[in-house]
Design a protein around this nucleic acid. Structure first.
Length: 117
DNA sequence: GAGGTGACGACCC
DNA sequence: TGGGTCGCCACCT
């Protein structure tokens, strides 16, 4: 951990972290939604990569609120088995078999919620 | 300085 | 309709 590019607000990662922190409690979003909000839906993979490094971020990034486009907790393996689901259920999000129930209902789109007026 | 990696998404067969 | 493959782009080694 020499530089990690942290502290550089213009970093793509930093931008991702900022958006994820804005996700309200009991809501979830997708990697693609964040990537699209940042202007590059093709960079959706980078969002996931950013989450992988989010554990080193302070304060912690609620990465458990970020799932793939169909509501599957693909990152739970990195969080720890059951941890991601437990955190979501604690916030009122029903999770079954690593899938968010009523995903569309809990979906939080930054491009809409954070739309520039 | 260059190549490889990756928690996804969209398109094609 | 379902499964498989490709692309994309910033960070890490």
């Amino acid at each position: 951990m020499k530089q990690k590019a942290t502290g550089c607000k213009s970093s793509f990662f930093a931008d991702v972290y900022e958006v994820v922190r804005l996700i309200p409690k009991g809501r979830v979003t997708s990697y693609g939604a964040i990537a699209r909000y940042l202007g590059s839906v093709q960079s959706s993979r980078m969002v996931g990569y950013a989450m992988n490094s989010s554990f080193a971020e302070t304060p912690g990034v609620p990465a458990h609120r970020v799932v793939n486009r169909v509501g599957v907790l693909t990152g739970k393996h990195y969080f720890g088995a059951g941890v991601m689901q437990k955190l979501l259920e604690k916030e009122g999000v029903k999770v079954k078999r690593d899938c968010v129930l009523n995903f569309k209902k809990h979906f939080w789109d930054p491009s809409i919620e954070l739309q520039i007026t």
